[in-house]
Simulated assay, not measured.
Amino acid sequence: MTLRSRILILASALAVLAAIALASVLHASARAERRDHTQAGGPRITPGTVTLTTPGRMIFRNMAWGPHRDELTTTPVSAPSGPRTASGVKCLRFYAAAGTGVCLQAVHGPVSDTYRALILDAHLKERAHYDVPGIPSRARVSPSGHYAAWTAFVGGDSYAGTNFSTRTAIVDTRTGALTPSLEEFRIVKDGRTYHAADVNFWGVTFASDDTTFYATLATKGSTYLIRGNLRTRTVTTLHPNVECPSLSPDGTRIAYKKRVKGLPKDAPWRLYVLNLKTMRETPLAEPRSVDDQAVWKDTHTVVYALPGDYGADLYEVPANGSGVPHRLLTSGVSAAFLK
């Protein structure tokens, strides 16, 4: 046997041993990942059927490590910390109403990720999809299920500073007609048509009439609550210093995050509720900075995400400013409550 042959045999043997070692490490890592949370006292998660038409349940993005991380999962509203049923559908942001869901997904490519918005039916099957021009941030569906909206960062990746830009789209889920950017709408500010190159919109929330919506408008370093009209394609400023609005089920109040002077630049917000009739603001009893578009669990309770050990946990607090925050569940984000 020649020296070259011996070297080739040795190299082949080393390659085989390296492959075996790598496979063992990956197998052990996968087993550890599957064990994670369940053996540590976390939620028990099993695959199953998830639909958008089962009253009394909540659906959210599962953040617990393991084979079902990032999947839409469901639990009863009455037992949110109990076992979870995983759908197999992965979303970065999600919302649902009236049997229609919107799921913002990452599409992993060989060089970089792209993003898309899926419109889902009641069984989480794709009805349509649309390109999303940046990192997904917010998602909503109208109470009727007839409209969906989403916001993405197209420059920057945080609302905390001023160096970012967003794109907010609205789609008619019945016809597929897409408004790719709310910047196409006419802006009425202080009673006059307003134009500015730095306009940004984010955080749509819909009223029940399939015409009215609310969102945040940012321009010249300030933010405003705007009321939009889908028929006239106009938006009108209503109230300053409002971000990520969420309309209450009865249509009378807006939950939102507000920048408060004196707080750190990277954590500048507190949760408030605005009465749309009186424009009176009520600070909620959450003392921490909340960077989320809250959802209404019911007419009395607001739910939102805060950082947790596995990315985020969901908390709830009374909408009238009383009480104290309560952790609803661990390792979850982007919740929708099915009626």
Rank of each mutant, 00 (worst) to 15 (best):
A30C: 09
L263P: 09
K90H: 05
T53S: 12
H146F: 12
T49A: 07
P110V: 03
G82E: 01
A177V: 15
G42P: 07
H146I: 01
T299G: 15
F60D: 02
R4D: 07
L284C: 10
P318M: 12
T168H: 06
K277I: 06
T51I: 03
M1N: 06
G251W: 13
K265Y: 15
D210Y: 13
R231S: 10
G145L: 14
L10I: 14
R253D: 02
T75V: 12
L314T: 09
P43V: 06
A218T: 14
V317Y: 03
R167I: 15
V141K: 02
E286D: 12
K297F: 14
D298F: 05
E183I: 10
N275P: 00
Y315R: 03
W150H: 05
R167P: 06
A197K: 15
P43G: 03
R116W: 00
V235E: 07
L8H: 07
A169H: 08
V302G: 04
E126S: 08
G109P: 05
Y310P: 08
P283C: 11
T234G: 09
E33A: 15
P287H: 10
R61P: 08
T168D: 02
T151E: 01
G323F: 07
A15R: 11
Y315W: 15
W202D: 01
L124E: 04
R31F: 08
K261C: 00
P264G: 11
T219V: 14
G332L: 09
K261R: 10
V102C: 03
L118R: 00
I9T: 00
W269T: 04
Y115W: 14
R69W: 08
L328R: 04
I20K: 10
L120C: 10
A40Q: 14
W269S: 09
R35N: 15
G66D: 03
